[in-house]
Design a protein around this nucleic acid. Structure first.
Lengths: 358, 358
DNA sequence: GTGAAAGCGCTAACAT
DNA sequence: ATGTTAGCGCTTTCAC
């Protein structure tokens, strides 16, 4: 309708004052006459004045935008992380720009470039499984754009990191199976590269060792692709082995669900013959029959924390304060359902029945 | 490391030429000496020059950012929509800024304000269930920021809209049950407000009518809250009624899953006694036992389309072209699993076994 | 308390 | 083919 958005200049002209005066009035600066201020504010409101943010961002060289790169949005863990990031960012007036790498290094790289166009103030990133080089991230740091790593982190660069205690989560899950009397516990891992996978594997192994149980190579299966199919397949293999396991800890819920189906199809009982526990507590975990015990990650909270951290670093940089990198390790909790303890140890049947052990 | 990012001015000075000359050289403009151009480009590369996007955006009054507001990120349908939006936007060099309304009108309103700070070029929005007023969106349009509505749309404003054919999807689902010989088909709806819910309800009703079946109020249950618990509860009610249904069409998968559990707990057979079909084909649909038949929405494609449309409108506005509003209706497909046809009509047991009917 | 002037980095129009 | 000028909208500095 109006030809152009109205600017300070318009207000100044109509009021017969100068542009800086209008600016001062509208920004609660000192050195402004009470009456002038009133008139300016009044007219601004009447004209529906809105400051041109392009100009302000340009002047401040600041966008109030946080960039986020994650491997996959359609993913229970990550969508919760994002949700936490956005909610926390909004509290401080920051907006979130989202990219997904689809586990591709090239795509991650490209996103980093595109970000430059929007001049993000900081970046939160969960590395793709195929990222073997982090120069693109160091480059951002060199340009005074702070980077916070979340979940899929790396030692190749110095930065603040948010991780959950994958090691302890895996240890607890394995210990849980052992406490139930299981002695021959198998493990299906995730993709080989990510530190998360390695930590879960380490937790599994250490729990066995701590309990004086042998670590058997034959009971450990590698699943680069995280899917029910792969879990089903590997579980079938395990069942057909001479040395059949009596319990299994899967590094992801989807593989655990595949494992459950394989066990059921083989005519074995869960958890009597083989107990199953997964990791991440996907929303499908309690849908499967029997409901799947799992390790819950503090996904949303990790996102919140990452947001708070990046904003802190952004502000420190602006104020020329030194920033110190911190690594935050957040704790998991054990969600116990029927796939490990059976119905007898839980209360009467309910759609959402489980015990939490922190 | 460097005191400041290097600018055209720096290059100009070092080369003893003027700033516009440098600009011309770097932007492939005509009217530039071949040799000068070479030297400029060379130095720019050597100095690692990167244009200041704040300045460019300021000059162009354009951000290359698309705003997206959806009710919930942690949601199978929406996370797929977002994924489609981002992928398509990236192709044209646009970035995506994401907000969630959590089904709150106030939150939606606030996001619209925050967007202004980042000066988005266009907005894609799926309305919250509680949005009863769209002045905030019309306001954007008045500021020449195009708005595209997706999935949760409204008649309160003129804009391009992307919806899926909820009516036909629901009709097909109901017809599917009827074709299986079911005659007393119940329906659990979603929240009352959204047009999507109403369309699904209408599809259900029309399918009954088209087949000469009565529409019975007693078989229709209203579920404002979409949850397994609510589905479980309403299904239990339906089962205890004198007029027990032999099939049920649920407007959402979570309620359908609750319904399945209720039927199983009542000792009835699925699909023999009661067949169940849901809507949206959540990832949990094939996990439940028996696997749930459902109506698949073209979620990712809807996102892609929305992105393409908003970019088209953004560009039309820039070029002072008139924009015409279009409504795109995208078709659903029927995913048939055991909850309606039983095992006999599907191939041998597989984790992911279903038939698709487009 | 207010105005004049300058500048953020870039590009477009005009002049040479 | 290159330089000069001007301006996008805002804020900051310095005079008065």
């Amino acid at each position: 309708m109006s030809k152009h958005n109205i600017s300070l200049k318009d207000i100044a002209r109509k009021l017969g004052v100068s542009i800086p005066t209008v600016s001062r009035a509208l920004n609660n600066k000192p050195d402004i006459g009470k009456e002038t201020k009133r008139k300016v504010i009044e007219l601004a409101k009447a004209l529906n004045y809105e400051p041109n943010q392009f100009a302000i961002n340009f002047k401040n060289q600041q966008s109030y935008i946080i960039g986020v790169i994650i491997p996959k949005i359609v993913h229970h863990f990550f969508s919760n992380v994002i949700s936490g990031i956005i909610t926390e960012a909004e509290k401080s007036g920051y907006s979130v720009m989202l990219f997904q790498s689809n586990e591709s290094y090239e795509s991650e790289l490209k996103s980093t470039q595109t970000f430059k166009r929007s001049m993000i103030d900081g970046l939160i990133i969960s590395l793709s499984d195929n990222t073997h080089n982090v120069d693109h991230l160091k480059n951002l740091q060199d340009h005074k754009i702070p980077v916070v790593l979340i979940d899929k982190v790396t030692d190749m660069m110095e930065a603040s990191k948010i991780v959950c205690n994958d090691y302890k989560g895996a240890y607890d899950a394995t210990q849980h199976l052992i406490s139930l009397g299981k002695r021959n516990i198998a493990h299906i891992t995730g993709a080989r590269k990510p530190t998360t996978t390695k930590e879960r594997y380490r937790g599994y192994k250490d729990a066995l060792i701590a309990n004086g149980l042998p670590v058997k190579e034959g009971l450990i299966k590698y699943c680069d692709l995280i899917s029910e199919d792969k879990g089903y397949y590997e579980m079938k293999n395990l069942i057909s082995q001479d040395d059949r396991p009596d319990g299994i800890f899967c590094a992801t819920d989807p593989t655990a669900i595949g494992a459950i189906n394989a066990i059921k199809d083989s005519g074995l009982q869960i958890p009597k013959d083989i107990a199953v526990i997964g990791f991440s507590n996907w929303n499908m975990a309690y849908i499967i029959d029997p409901p799947l015990s799992s390790v819950k990650q503090p996904d949303y909270e990790m996102g919140e924390k990452a947001s708070a951290l990046i904003i802190e670093e952004i502000q420190n940089i602006r104020n020329e304060q030194p920033i110190t990198f911190k690594t935050h390790v957040m704790e998991t909790s054990l969600i116990i359902r029927e796939s490990t303890v059976g119905k007898k140890d839980l209360n009467s049947r309910d759609v959402l029945n489980y015990k939490i052990i922190e």
